[in-house]
Computed example of a mutant assay.
Amino acid sequence: MHCTQSRPPYLDAGDRVILFDGVCRLCNAWCRFILKYDTRQRFRMAPVQSCAGQAILAHFGLPTDRFDTMLYVEGSQAHERSDAVLRVVTQLGWPWRLAAVLWLCPRRVRDFVYDHIARHRYRLFGRYDQCELPPADDAKRVLDSRD
């Protein structure tokens, strides 16, 4: 977990932002899942390839040229890997909140599984030639689409 004293660029107070690999088919499916089940619209998305994604990664001292983890930013804290996934999923409500039981699993084990999937995600799920955009109805939930 990365924590800073200042708010990351592009974020307003209270924003909850999920940074994801915009060309990864698995990552895009994850974002569509969030958009569908985040009925309270708590989360915003930002592809790591976007200006906002790059600035947020740099703010937390993370690489901006390779993307091997999902990042979840809430306030001035950034959460990576399995912690990020669980923090997001457990805020979606029933039945997704049941995933909280995975907090009982040691982080080392959770992150081992996460890293294995992340390392092979393009081979297993494929990739897009360019960053995919969300449907027009959800464009306001993408960080770079702010006015």
Results as ranks from 00 to 15, higher is better:
P9N: 10
Y10T: 00
D12E: 12
V17K: 01
L19E: 02
L19N: 01
L26A: 12
C27N: 06
A29F: 13
W30S: 14
C31I: 15
I34V: 15
Y37T: 11
R42D: 09
F43S: 05
R44L: 12
M45H: 04
G53M: 02
A55P: 08
L57N: 07
A58L: 09
L62T: 07
T64L: 07
F67M: 10
D68P: 01
M70L: 15
L71N: 00
Y72G: 04
E74H: 06
E74Y: 01
G75H: 05
S76N: 14
Q77V: 11
D83G: 03
D83Q: 06
D83R: 03
A84G: 07
V85L: 11
V89Q: 01
V89L: 11
G93F: 04
P95I: 08
L102S: 06
L104S: 06
C105K: 04
R107A: 13
R107I: 08
D111G: 05
D111S: 04
Y114W: 04
D115T: 07
H116Q: 09
A118R: 01
A118G: 09
R119H: 13
H120S: 12
F125H: 10
G126C: 09
Y128S: 13
D129P: 14
C131Y: 05
C131F: 04
C131I: 14
C131M: 13
E132K: 12
L133W: 07
P134A: 15
A136E: 15
D137G: 14
L143H: 04
L143K: 03
S145A: 15
D147I: 14
D147S: 15
